[in-house]
């Protein structure tokens, strides 16, 4: 009984001034009494991460080729790649979790984990081993002779230049007019990004004879568009190494003279609207 009287009195004390426009905060306070607490109770209840939460960089060691592109992309120089000793080092107390290294990795062996690095009493430096070359190939089941050696290009090359565009180290130069393909073996980091990109699958490490002087094969096919499917996003125009495609508004144009039939546009089209036809 007494309790009820106290509660009613307290409510009146809050409500009367509130109605007078004098104590506006009363409503929120009263509301908060009946809501459950906003506190997340962190150490007792662990935090649930979002899919994109950037916590700390992790490395999938066996795939690393020690190219050092991550160290170059890092804005704080937190990453150090020692190819000679086969070590990949990260200074945890320097990393800003921008994930620039993750984006730069040609082998996709770096990932951004959700969990942050724990506080510590020393400046933590984490070290990972980069596998030696022979061991990695044995593990991958590739014959050493085939996979070793410099990057070469077979005579199926159409000189589209996509490999040069994809190269993170700018080691490849392609001149379509001169029909020349060159690789700077000093600059090449052997990441294999160009091999993945090549629409004609002409590239390999230590493979068939170089195609530097080889003539372009006779043109067999050119791109063709299915206008029903096209969303005019211009992804094909951006990708085209020969600059044969132009997209303006809802107009898609192909310069058949320029088209080298590399099929790169077919690969990037999000709507699967491009196919190859006889020239």
């Amino acid at each position: 009984m007494i309790l009820i009287v106290i509660v009613v009195a307290a409510l009146l004390c809050v409500i009367i001034p509130t109605r007078l426009g004098f104590f506006k905060f009363g409503k929120i306070i009263l509301g908060s009494i009946f809501k459950k607490p906003a506190t997340l109770m962190y150490p007792v209840v662990p935090r649930e991460w979002e899919e994109r939460t950037r916590g700390s960089v992790a490395i999938d060691g066996p795939n690393c080729i020690g190219c050092g592109l991550c160290a170059g992309a890092c804005p704080t120089d937190a990453i150090e790649v020692d190819k000679a000793e086969g070590k990949w080092k990260i200074q945890r107390m320097l990393c800003v979790q921008c994930s620039a290294c993750v984006d730069s990795c040609p082998k996709k062996c770096l990932t951004m984990e959700n969990m942050y690095t724990l506080p510590n009493v020393v400046k933590v430096v984490d070290e990972y081993d980069i596998p030696a070359k022979g061991a990695k190939k044995a593990a991958a089941g590739v014959a050493p002779a085939e996979a070793d050696g410099d990057l070469t290009c077979a005579d199926t090359c159409v000189f589209c230049g996509l490999c040069a565009k994809a190269c993170p180290a700018d080691a490849i130069t392609v001149d379509r007019k001169e029909k020349s393909w060159k690789v700077d073996t000093e600059a090449c980091i052997k990441c294999g990004a160009c091999i993945d990109k090549c629409p004609k699958k002409s590239l390999s490490f230590g493979g068939a004879a170089p195609a530097a002087e080889a003539a372009a094969p006779a043109k067999k096919s050119v791109a063709s568009l299915d206008e029903e499917k096209c969303v005019y996003c211009a992804a094909c125009a951006n990708e085209c190494g020969a600059e044969a495609i132009t997209v303006e508004g809802t107009e898609w144009k192909l310069d058949e003279e320029k088209c080298i039939g590399c099929e790169a546009c077919v690969g990037v089209c999000p709507a699967e609207a491009i196919s190859m036809k006889e020239a």
Partner: peptide
């Protein structure tokens, strides 16, 4: 600041960071 946390959760969900988005 309690209300603001909801906005920060939106940021974390969509960009991955609470205050620095990169």
């Amino acid at each position: 600041w309690r209300v603001r946390e909801t906005v920060l959760d939106l940021f974390e969900k969509n960009t991955g960071g609470r205050v620095i988005f990169s």
